[in-house]
Design a protein around this nucleic acid. Structure first.
Length: 383
RNA sequence: GGAGGGGUGCCGGAGUGGUUAAUCGGAGCAGACUGUAAAUCUGCCGCCUGGAAGGGCUACACAGGUUCGAAUCCUGUCCCCUCCA
């Protein structure tokens, strides 16, 4: 794997990520397909939108169908019929999301399967071995992702463990066709983030991720920590902000020099009727869309917006029809892809700051209106 | 004609003397979701008033009655269903 920095606009960067499964232009958003599928869509539809890389999950695939099965069937790309690039997450996020089902110590983490209750001990070495079995283009170290409200000592302990594990992962890593990325931890504490970024940068990984953000902390904090951490990472290596996110979060993080994003948000939220538009997030099942003849976003080039009225999407959601989930996912992923292309274009034209301002102004307009209304109400009651 | 059962809020359906503006579903109205245990979860949901807490009003087919107190007991009326003839 190689990373070429093409252009910077202030701190924002446009680059190219060269993988065994193609060249990926950055900034890039990876759709999440934890179980070797981006829920509701075919690989053809995903690449039809324009995506060239996606994310899958080591832990979930290890549990089911089992890494061996996938290896036997010719690795993950072939198993899921995707010939673009793949990044696998190690399972570190499951230390956070499945907190009630695992026990952790310096040696590794023991998960109790949410599927059948069976017990599974995953060490950093094992996490690498399993990811090698899947054959993704980029793999991640096993990290300990603590909740964002963890106190300093707890966060520090998780960070130390993540560092220890990063070294072990690096040592265990053999397959030179797979790039192993490190993950900076340190929660919402700038001094820990600094320690973490510096320590890991010293280990010379081919790419660096920032983990443990967008887990419930205020957005301002997410942005501050992202900015601070990104500034401490090597210039010539790709930077990956894990689990982010929403359109506005990505716009902010690109400004701080992040190159890679992934998030389940656009797809999950789509399945629940929340659709991204240039004017902000919208809930298609709201009553006001019942009779809307125009497409949800006339400027959108997705299959759903080109072929159906907002009223039809509204109807599909009301009925609980499966097509609703597909069309909404198609729409949100198209929005994300277009957004990333636009950020890249803006950077290449050295106009990112203006682009960002314009985007946020429009995107937040709707939310801002709602907020203003609430504020008015509040003020009225206080005289 | 005879015997029995029943009429509850937008709908379905609990409740059989006070703690009931009335369990629970559904529908409706909103909100949340960020390295996916999620086609999930949360709130509101008689009317008026209030940001809320609260307050006021009207309610369990209809009319009357018993009772300190009734959706719940009694009487009458109307309507619906089942079985027998």
């Amino acid at each position: 794997m190689d990373f070429i920095l093409k252009k910077t606009s202030n701190r924002a960067r446009a680059g190219e990520l060269i993988t065994p499964h193609g060249v990926i232009q950055t900034p890039v958003f990876l759709p999440v397909g934890s179980q070797a599928t981006v829920k509701t869509l075919t690989p053809q539809e995903i690449s039809g939108i324009g995506f060239k890389m996606l994310l899958a999950n080591n832990y979930h695939l290890y549990l089911r169908p089992g890494t061996e099965t996938i290896t036997k069937l010719g690795c993950l790309h072939r198993f899921m019929g995707w010939d673009g690039a793949i990044l696998t997450d190690s399972g570190g996020y499951q230390i956070f999301s499945l907190a009630g089902l695992r026990k952790i110590n310096d040696e590794g983490v023991t998960f109790r399967s949410h599927i059948d209750g069976s017990s599974h001990f995953i060490t950093p070495e094992r996490a690498i071995e399993l990811q090698q079995g899947l054959g993704a283009d980029i793999i991640m170290v096993l990290d300990e992702c603590p909740p964002s409200d963890a106190d300093f000592n707890k966060t520090r302990r998780a960070m130390k463990r993540t560092h220890l594990w990063a070294e072990r992962c690096k040592k265990a890593h053999r397959n030179s066709k797979q790039a192993l990325f490190a993950i900076v931890q340190g929660g919402v504490f700038p001094e820990l983030r600094k320690q973490s970024a510096e320590m890991l940068a010293g280990l010379d990984f081919p790419g660096y991720a920032i983990g443990g953000l967008s887990l419930g902390e205020p957005k301002e904090t997410t942005y501050e920590i992202t900015a601070q951490t990104a500034a401490l990472l090597p210039q010539d290596k790709p930077r990956y902000l894990m689990g982010v996110g929403s359109p506005e979060d990505i716009i902010e993080a690109v400004a701080e020099g992040i190159d890679i994003f992934d998030s389940a948000l656009p797809t999950r939220v789509a399945r629940n009727g929340a659709l991204f538009t240039r004017r902000g997030r919208v809930n298609i099942s709201n009553a006001k869309y019942k009779d809307m003849e125009e497409p949800l976003d006339a400027a959108c080039n997705c299959y759903a917006c080109k072929n159906f009225s907002a009223a039809y999407l509204h109807h599909l959601f009301r009925c609980g029809e499966l097509l609703a989930l597909r069309l909404a996912t198609l729409h949100n992923l198209t929005f994300m892809h277009n957004l990333m292309q636009d950020t890249r274009t803006a950077i290449l034209n050295d106009g990112y700051a203006a682009f960002r301002g314009e985007f946020l102004k429009n995107y937040k307009a709707t939310n801002e209106e709602v907020r203003l209304e609430q504020k008015k109400k509040w003020l009225k009651t206080r005289g």
